[in-house]
Design a protein around this nucleic acid. Sequence first.
DNA 1: CATGAAAGTGAACGGCGTTAACGGTAAACG
DNA 2: CGTTTACCGTTAACGCCGTTCACTTTCATG
Lengths: 252, 252
Amino acid sequence: MTQTGQPTRRERQREATYDEIVRVSRELLVEGAELSLRAVAARMGMTAPALYRYVSSYQDLVDLVAFEIDKAATARFAAAADTLPADDVAGRLVLSTTEFRMWALDAPREFGLVFANPVADPACGRREALTLSSSGLLFTDQMRAIWEQRRFPVPALEDLTETARTAVLDPLIPAESEGIAPEHRGLMWVYMQGWTQLYGVVALEVFGHMDPRLIESGDMFVDVLSRFAPTIGVSDEMARLEVLVRERIARG
Amino acid sequence: MTQTGQPTRRERQREATYDEIVRVSRELLVEGAELSLRAVAARMGMTAPALYRYVSSYQDLVDLVAFEIDKAATARFAAAADTLPADDVAGRLVLSTTEFRMWALDAPREFGLVFANPVADPACGRREALTLSSSGLLFTDQMRAIWEQRRFPVPALEDLTETARTAVLDPLIPAESEGIAPEHRGLMWVYMQGWTQLYGVVALEVFGHMDPRLIESGDMFVDVLSRFAPTIGVSDEMARLEVLVRERIARG
DNA sequence: CATGAAAGTGAACGGCGTTAACGGTAAACG
DNA sequence: CGTTTACCGTTAACGCCGTTCACTTTCATG
């Protein structure tokens, strides 16, 4: 019979419904409304129980939406990097991280959903998918590009604690580390250090636990980037990079 | 007539009720239950509407509880420091921050309530009280003690951006900065840098956005402290301090 | 003692997640 | 082709939630 590729008609319909669920959910979040099964269903012209054909619970909906938001946001971070030539590896990372910050301040609810929601405990399915965040892959990839160009020093494996060594050699949270030779896996530790600092300043800003004037100016964010620059061997470029960052911040 | 100091009987009763509200709320959180007006009221042998005599809304209850949790947690951080002599200023700060981490991992819901809840926008009342967190006062005070003993270099005011200079000279989020001469206010900037890093690693751990094995071992937390040590002139002591930290972590 | 404010109650409204029983409809199959 | 079956949606209901309103009770005080 008409085998148009794999997806049967039913499957296509179902996929479209999933897409609509995510789209409507994000609309609600952007409008500042609460994300709820009933609200999503109503906007789709359905009743709430019908959604249970697609998600098994409210938390499941949240996880699904968080996963898709992360994907979309990551595309935005990547697009910011792509305003620079491919060989400007430092500029690209800096623009992506700045875009990350602006996105978080723009859409704090979405940020909270993806990055400030306790990740589910059950060692099953979606947890991996969520922990394996698209943005993580992007940032690790960009940092690897810098390292391949500059070969800045990274900690030797024997200088890491045993747990850290294990974590960088066999990452539970998968990252773009496949192509990195074991003796250079210290790079992953540098990445985690950077991610920790980036996350700290951005979360602090988003949750408002910082002087509003500093949030407005972005000075602490710039400061964090500047202090991290030497670690990845880009301190000589920092003046230029800071201009890039401040331009992006000024654009609001 | 019977003016026993200020507080009349009614006022004492009311104060006791407030205390019970907070106590019961924290019980619920610790038990992993949801914080709700009805649950709090029920456990107090009241009905939900009665609580409206004490808090004006659910959010108001959350703010109240968050404020009290912060106070209680700060007492715990201070007690951890007090296991060391008063002149071991570095050890005291390190033990307090480690206690902060252990508390956050212990009581993630309480941590979230205090440190990952968007601070209310309305420029009124409780916002100040919350932003003026007890823990902030403790940490700034401990860092000032280190600085007074070591006089580690702090950024000069003219090396700060204008916004940063304004923020450290006239802090909106009040800190133990009253007694610091203007020319040494760069210390407040160092404090904010440290707080940002501490917050980043702890929040990342609490929300589970980090390799579970690293959370378990606390290696990234130790790494953050170690990297910050030079900034406050305690790198020479770091070996001893790391032992202190790891002992506390091992105690679970 | 009378008064009046404070404290608490019960009923109700609308919204939430979730379950259960049921109907229509389109795909799958003999 | 007709029949079966799995899927998709419905309505109704349960128990929870925050919140309001009208009401009683309590109790310190003039």
